[in-house]
C-alpha cells in the first residue's frame, strides 16, 4: 500500500461559531498505480485532504502512512521527498525569476540531498531537454528562458513535469487545470494521463470538472462535509456518467448537489 490514511480528522476553529469539521474520520487507501479522482462541492474537504497528505496541515487525530512509514508528524518539506504536487495556480509550482533548466534542476533534487555541486550540468541539460520534448510545447529550445515569461499553460505543463519526472511515491494534483482556458486545460489533462501512465504514478487528483473526474483514473471518490460519501472503481467507474453521479449524490444526501461549477463542469 502506497498511501494509508487512517481515521483522519481535522477541525478548524474548534469551539467557535466558525467551527468547521473539515475531515471526519476519513480513511483512504491507495495501492501502487492507483489513480484516484476526487470530486465534491466547495468546502467538502477536498483541499484539506490534499493538505493533510502533503503535510501542510497536521491532522487532529489519525495517521498518514506512506509506503509503510508513518509520516504524520513529518514536516512538509521532508514529506515532499515522497510526494510530488501540482497546485491550482500555475504561478505556484515554479520559480518565476529562474530559468526553465534551473527550475528543473531544483525539482531533480527533490529526493536527493542538495550539495554544493553545480545544479545544471551538461548531462542533466540533455536529460531535461529529453523530458521537455514530451510536452510538445517547444520548451526544450528555451532552457535558458525565465519561467516568468511563459504562459499559464506552459508553466502548468512545466509544473506537472517537475512534479512527476523524479517519480514520487504519490502525486497530488490540486485542481491543476481549473485556472486554465479550456484548450490549455485539455492539454494539461492529456499530459497528466500520459505522465501518470508512463511513470506508473500513484495519483490523487482533486477536480471540479466531473467529466475530467470520469475520464481520468481508475478510481473515483466523492466527498461531502468532510467525509468520503462515495467510492467507485474499475468497471463500475467506467460505466459512470455525470447524470448517474448527480443522482447518486442525491440518493445519499437527499439533496441537490448545490455547486453550479461542479454541474456545469
Amino acid at each position: 500500500m502506497v498511501l494509508n490514511l487512517k481515521d483522519v480528522s481535522i477541525t478548524f476553529n474548534e469551539g467557535t461559531l466558525d467551527e468547521k469539521k473539515a475531515l471526519q474520520h476519513t480513511n483512504l487507501q491507495l495501492e501502487q498505480g492507483d489513480f484516484v479522482t476526487v470530486i465534491g462541492s466547495n468546502g467538502a474537504g477536498k483541499s484539506t485532504l490534499m493538505n493533510v497528505i502533503s503535510g501542510s496541515l497536521k491532522p487532529d487525530i489519525g495517521s498518514v502512512i506512506v509506503d509503510d512509514k508513518d509520516v504524520t508528524m513529518l514536516k512538509e518539506f521532508k514529506r515532499s521527498q515522497y510526494i510530488g504536487r501540482v497546485f491550482q495556480d500555475p504561478m505556484a509550482g515554479t520559480a518565476p525569476t529562474m530559468t526553465i533548466e534551473e527550475n528543473l534542476a531544483m525539482a531533480y533534487a527533490r529526493n536527493k540531498t542538495r550539495t554544493l555541486k553545480s545544479g545544471v550540468t551538461k548531462k542533466r541539460k540533455a536529460l531535461f531537454r529529453e523530458y521537455l520534448e514530451t510536452l510538445h510545447l517547444g520548451l526544450e529550445n528555451r532552457l535558458n528562458a525565465k519561467v516568468g515569461m511563459l504562459s499559464g499553460g506552459e508553466r502548468q505543463a512545466l509544473s506537472l513535469l517537475m512534479a512527476t519526472f523524479t517519480e514520487p511515491n504519490i502525486l497530488l494534483l490540486d485542481e491543476h487545470t481549473a485556472a486554465l482556458d479550456p484548450s490549455r486545460a485539455e492539454l494539461i489533462t492529456n499530459l497528466t494521463g500520459e505522465v501518470v501512465e508512463k511513470f506508473n504514478l500513484t495519483t490523487l487528483m482533486v477536480t471540479h470538472n466531473m467529466q475530467q473526474a470520469l475520464d481520468l483514473g481508475n478510481r473515483l471518490i466523492m466527498m461531502d462535509k468532510g467525509q468520503i460519501i462515495l467510492e467507485v472503481s474499475g468497471e463500475e467507474k467506467q460505466a459512470l456518467t455525470i447524470e448517474k453521479l448527480l443522482a447518486e449524490f442525491q440518493r445519499i444526501r437527499g439533496e441537490q448537489m448545490a455547486n453550479d461549477r461542479a454541474i456545469l463542469g
Binding site: E76, F87, M98, E102, M106, A163
Partner: peptide, 20 residues
C-alpha cells in the same frame, strides 16, 4: 549550485521549493 538554486527559490517562491 543545488543549494544555491534552492536558496534563490526560497526568495522567489517559497511554497514551491518547499514542495521539492
Amino acid at each position: 549550485t543545488e543549494v544555491g538554486l534552492a536558496l534563490r527559490a526560497t526568495g522567489d517562491n517559497e511554497k514551491m521549493i518547499r514542495s521539492f
